[in-house]
């Protein structure tokens, strides 16, 4: 099994909720569901990994979708966001077109992001995350505010990308998410925050 990520937190690492203990693994081309009660520390652990990316995720290129809306200063539109991303990275993104069509954002590309609804804002966030060429995508509550049609597109898109060897980590409460995940990272709390990796 080709693990792209394998981190042992046996010594315990301090998060906001307390020390985390356990082993976290991620296989190339798999989707992993992080399960645990609300407020147990799943998002905190994700934030911790992001802040310590160089130490715990040094072998992989990651993109993150964190909780909360995309806040933009000024009247920048989704089209501006795509253009600025392309200008910065020096390449155009064919995947952005597929995502725009799948998320049905064509008519909202020229609307300032701050005037978009909660669901549309979430879609633009997803677009900005998924259009990048990464090997691991961390998606925290990606389906928030989305309708069933767009959730289906998202999950189908994830399945398609996995065939290219891309891995996904989902912090998700949608009931269908567990149906296509190959592994689960279970969060539990006794004296400390425990994580347990399990292949499904």
């Amino acid at each position: 099994m080709n693990y792209v990520v394998e981190n042992h937190f046996q010594e315990g690492v301090q998060l906001i909720h307390g020390k985390i203990h356990g082993i976290w693994k991620l296989v190339q081309g798999e989707s992993q569901l992080w399960q645990g009660a609300n407020g147990i520390g799943k998002s905190s652990f994700l934030r911790f990994l992001r802040e310590n990316e160089k130490k715990y995720l040094k072998e992989v290129v990651c993109s993150y979708l964190m909780q909360g809306p995309l806040h933009v200063l000024g009247d920048y539109t989704p089209r501006d966001l795509i253009k600025h991303t392309e200008d910065y990275l020096g390449k155009s993104f064919e995947s952005s077109q597929e995502l725009i069509e799948g998320f049905k954002l064509q008519s909202r590309l020229d609307t300032p992001i701050r005037f978009l609804s909660g669901g549309e804002n979430q879609l633009v966030k997803l677009l900005s995350c998924l259009m990048l060429s990464s090997s691991v995508y961390f998606l925290d509550e990606a389906t928030t505010h989305l309708d069933e049609e767009r959730i289906k597109f998202l999950f189908d898109y994830i399945q398609k990308r996995k065939k290219d060897g891309v891995s996904f980590v989902l912090i998700e409460h949608h009931p269908h998410a567990s149906l296509f995940c190959e592994s689960v990272l279970k969060f539990s709390k006794r004296n400390r925050l425990e994580i347990e990796y399990e292949r499904v």
Partner: peptide, 14 residues
Amino acid sequence: MQLLVYGAEYCQNL
């Protein structure tokens, strides 16, 4: 700095 208008998360992804 243009990228900063979209927030920290966006910048870190790039």
